[in-house]
Design a protein around this nucleic acid. Structure first.
Lengths: 342, 342
DNA sequence: GAGTAGCTTGGGAACGTTCCCATTTACTCG
DNA sequence: CGAGTAAATGGGAACGTTCCCAAGCTACTC
């Protein structure tokens, strides 16, 4: 049992004194050079550290060494399961390579983004993974200019020089549309949030429009609505379903949030799933539960997380060298369920 | 535009030199004593800092001051929406009080818990919020002994001396059972994961057994199953529904995970919701989507997060003073939906 | 048997801050 | 008009590490 009132932690120097060795030796012991020390010294240090409850002070450590061993993550919406899944992959990968992850949630608020960016910079994170909200803030640009390795999740950001890791959007849209076509749907309504600043939304939208324009068995339209505008969504869907047309109709949702909103809308309109097709990008817990199951295109979130760390560390290992920004695109996995079975 | 190759950040001393002032003044400027400086000095410092892209080094700062301004959170499963929601509340509250949150996910793995605990201790977090997995690790006990303020989420942990913030379990169970009774259900199957180490599960289970034992219009049983054992769950539910009994039957799920599993099971058994009642503790995105909507008892997650930070800071403000551990219980909010309407 | 190489060990100067003191300057008051 | 106070500023010693360099020792090599 420890004396309950010791409020300040033991320091390296105290351990050294207690063990009767120099601070350098203690530093070596905890700094991964344990094998350089004689067995005797090791034992004495271990004993003293144990006795005093010593833990190396990371702050002092990174101050001297210049290496914080910290990776920062800026996530736009922590309550989005996609973000959480990627975060999980990131954390695993970081840990495996001796880094820790510091996560900040911006709630889609540029002010919080700036503030958190300053925070992370203050802790001298060695790399940054960002799920950007709007356009690049001044702070972010400045960090990038200073050479801080940056990885963007899912979307590019203006002309910001950074690696991007995400879904291969064109391929994802193709997979989705091909699936709908194969299941016998001919008329598609593509639902998305406004693509304004988000490059991935633009890419998906562009591919959809290209494919729908080509004909080849599919026709339809794209519809971009503000998130949360349920009446508009209901109206858009109702209009789409009411329009004359011989081919079976289906909805394709650009991401998980849209899938959620569209599912609500279809229930409000009392439309049966399957008869009218429904498919979404992003797999979610509940997609299999809403009868008869909602077809989705799952993103390989863990892979994306791992890849992000990979990029970061690659740049860290080659400091100074200014490699051109790189994109990594991952394929999605189709999970076919009842909502696209007629 | 900054010179792209400056890999090391500007320091306080460089700013001081550039501005032609002493480092003390710069320290004051960034340390919240800005008003003590003359307008002239303020302007010169601001200019220099801007020019050099200076950001105070948090590491050095907390090294000297002994205050890391960091709160640690240890969460058992980051993919659990309840945890994320609490985390969100925590983060907001931390930010509002000038702290930052460092989150670690243990994936329910004691080894990772120990490792992350060491990490957080290394960064000298000033308080710790824990969503504990099993029994208290040695490391945790040690930190507690050293007087690090600790808040446990949702469950107590052995004899560990720490504040606890969570749902008022007895009251929650009462609310749920009263609702089921009012809706005309008479026979209840309570589903839970094994309560082994988790005090909140024990508390809920105990109250359920007490109430079901009392009679008063309700009878039934409790059933504890390993998470993920779908066949056993199906069998248990099937047996419950097949048993003779005149009163309408309902299922009560101890938490979100159980609700998910039970919903799957009911679908597999092709049982209609409402006719057989279903109710869960924890509100989830999809509960309104599974027809006809699943009744839940929502936990006030944001409040819980805020309360946790509150406790922590209260102890931080009164250092040394060893106040007895305290429990805060929050009430849940009933969200009645179709699954408990006959 | 001296020179060299390798191992183990320790001393001390950083790292970028904060904060306690001292110093200077300008005012007020009796 | 001198003393006393307040406000503005700066110098320097910490804080707990790491890491360069040097010292002592043992054991070879030629």
């Amino acid at each position: 049992m420890h004396s309950a009132s010791s409020r300040t932690d033991a320091t390296l120097l105290e351990v050294a004194r207690d063990a009767g060795v120099s601070k350098t030796s203690v530093s070596r012991y905890f700094g991964g050079e344990r094998e350089r020390l004689s067995a005797d010294l090791q034992a004495r240090i271990a004993g003293a550290a144990q006795r005093l409850g010593y833990r190396p002070n990371q702050m002092a450590r990174s101050l001297k060494g210049g290496r914080s061993r910290l990776i920062g993550m800026l996530v736009a919406d922590i309550r989005n399961p996609f973000s959480v899944a990627v975060m999980h992959g990131l954390e695993q990968a970081c840990r495996a390579r001796g880094f820790s992850l510091m996560v900040c949630n911006t709630d889609n608020d540029p002010a919080q983004e700036r503030e958190h960016l300053a925070l992370l910079a203050g802790y001298r994170v060695e790399g940054l993974v960002i799920n950007p909200t709007g356009q690049p803030s001044h702070e972010l640009r400045q960090l990038a200019d200073q050479g801080l390795p940056l990885v963007l999740l899912d979307r590019t950001l203006g002309d910001l020089e950074a690696d991007v890791v995400g879904l291969d959007n064109a391929h994802a849209i193709d997979t989705a549309l091909d699936h709908l076509l194969a299941q016998g749907y001919g008329e598609v309504l593509y639902l998305s949030e406004p693509p304004s600043r988000a490059s991935s939304r633009q890419a998906r939208l562009a591919r959809v429009e290209q494919r729908l324009g080509e004909g080849a068995g599919l026709s339809g339209e794209a519809c971009c609505l503000e998130p949360g505008d349920a009446p508009a969504l209901n109206a858009a869907i109702a209009a789409f379903l009411a329009a004359p047309g011989a081919a079976p109709k289906a909805l394709l949702c650009a991401n998980g949030n849209v899938t959620l909103a569209a599912t609500r809308a279809l229930q409000a309109l009392d439309v049966g799933l399957g008869e009218t097709g429904l498919m979404g990008i992003d797999e979610l817990d509940w997609c299999e539960l809403v009868a008869p199951g909602i077809t989705t295109l799952a993103q390989p979130t863990e892979d994306i997380g791992r890849a992000a760390v990979d990029r970061l560390l690659r740049r860290l290992d080659a400091p100074g060298e200014r490699a051109p920004p790189r994109r990594s695109d991952y394929g999605g996995r189709l999970i076919a369920r009842g909502s696209t079975r007629r």
